[in-house]
Write a protein that binds this DNA or RNA. Structure first.
Length: 327
DNA sequence: AACGTCCTCAACCGCTATAAC
DNA sequence: GGTTATAGCGGTTGAGGACGT
């Protein structure tokens, strides 16, 4: 005898969730907290499998979830982390706590992967001077990675925001999610009743917003990789801030590669001492941290990874909005 | 207006590791 | 220790909207 089944397999509803179902689920979780998913269908009367309830909460209703366009910095992080970690969407999502792994996976599959492939094809016989400048053995791996990243045709349409609520870069918190779904529910209900929708509170996420970045955000073609025949503003463009992020990343990666190389040949420059110390700290941290610590929390951050996160906190992306754009 | 194609993304599927019985 | 459910993950699907002809 094992555990009893989580729910009856018969009469289980599938497909998109309705606002009513969301409200029932959110109300229940507000009262009881997330977890014990097994009891959710039974206690709420939802004709959903417990797994479906958990996924709906995790991927859509959970607090703090961002929805809408990915920012240039988020795109840069996804590119970098995907290069570092591969298709470990949950791990990548742990560095973007407001994004779900499902969102990141979808965004990668529908936007980034496609553009990267296209531009790599377009630039197959071209080479970036930043890549060619790398010469030592450890840089070979970086070379390929940087080339891959540098040829990433990032976010043209997605960086060219429109004042359009469906493309809004405003991200709804769970409260706003609920508010939004409540509005939709009330509106749809109001068509059946005499409810005065003018009195319905309009959540920030529900309205039409000018994006913070907005129309001022231009895009530029990736230097040296603007495919022939592509007009400015078309696909395969890369934003200035993402490009600078990649270059910064290149420099740090190159430093690591150079330090590794120097370290192995006992040629340690004083300028690299800080890098070495930080590098050692990271290595020690990875050695000393219990394996279980990785299970429910992000792995320890390398200073590369810290850089990725620090960039957001220093407002670098915002500062770059002021940069002139070229094409 | 009608039709076909493409694109997006929420939801599902199937698998593995772990926990509960 | 064996069996079964759950949690978590990555891959895939398909409904519906956008777009082009």
């Amino acid at each position: 005898m094992g555990r009893p089944p989580c729910c009856e397999k018969v009469d289980i509803k599938k497909g998109p969730w309705t606002p009513e179902e969301d409200i029932i689920l959110v109300t229940y979780i507000q009262d009881h907290g997330p977890g014990n998913w097994r009891s959710v269908p039974t206690n709420t009367g939802l004709l959903r499998c417990s797994k479906s309830c958990r996924l709906r909460w995790t991927n859509y209703l959970r607090p703090g979830i961002k929805r809408g366009n990915f920012t240039p910095h988020e795109e840069g992080m996804i590119i970098h982390l995907q290069a570092l970690l591969g298709n470990k969407w949950a791990a990548i999502a742990s560095y973007l706590p407001q994004r779900t792994d499902n969102d990141i996976k979808n965004y990668w599959n529908t936007h980034l992967k496609k553009k990267i492939k296209k531009l790599q094809t377009a630039s197959s016989d071209d080479h970036d001077p930043h890549v060619l400048a790398l010469s030592d053995h450890s840089a070979q791996y970086q070379k390929k990675k940087i080339f891959d990243m540098a040829t990433s045709p990032l976010a043209s349409t997605d960086l060219t925001f429109h004042d359009n609520s469906s493309n809004s870069n405003f991200y709804a918190s769970s409260t706003e999610n609920i508010s939004r779904l409540l509005q939709g529910w009330m509106r749809s209900t109001s068509t059946k009743t005499t409810m005065d929708t003018k009195n319905v509170d309009v959540s920030p996420s529900g309205g039409s917003h000018g994006n913070i970045i907005g129309d001022s955000l231009a895009t530029i073609p990736l230097r040296g990789y603007c495919p022939k025949g592509e007009k400015p503003g078309g696909e395969d463009l890369i934003s200035e801030e993402v490009f600078e992020s990649i270059l910064s990343f290149d420099n740090l990666n190159t430093k690591i590669g150079n330090w590794d190389h120097k370290n192995s040949s006992s040629d340690k420059g004083s300028d690299d001492e800080n890098i070495k110390d930080e590098y050692d700290d990271v290595k020690n941290d990875r050695k000393t941290r219990p394996a279980d610590d990785h299970k429910n929390s992000p792995p320890p951050l390398s200073f590369l990874e810290n850089w990725l996160l620090d960039e957001a906190s220093t407002g670098q992306v915002g500062d770059m909005m002021e940069l002139p754009f070229i094409c």
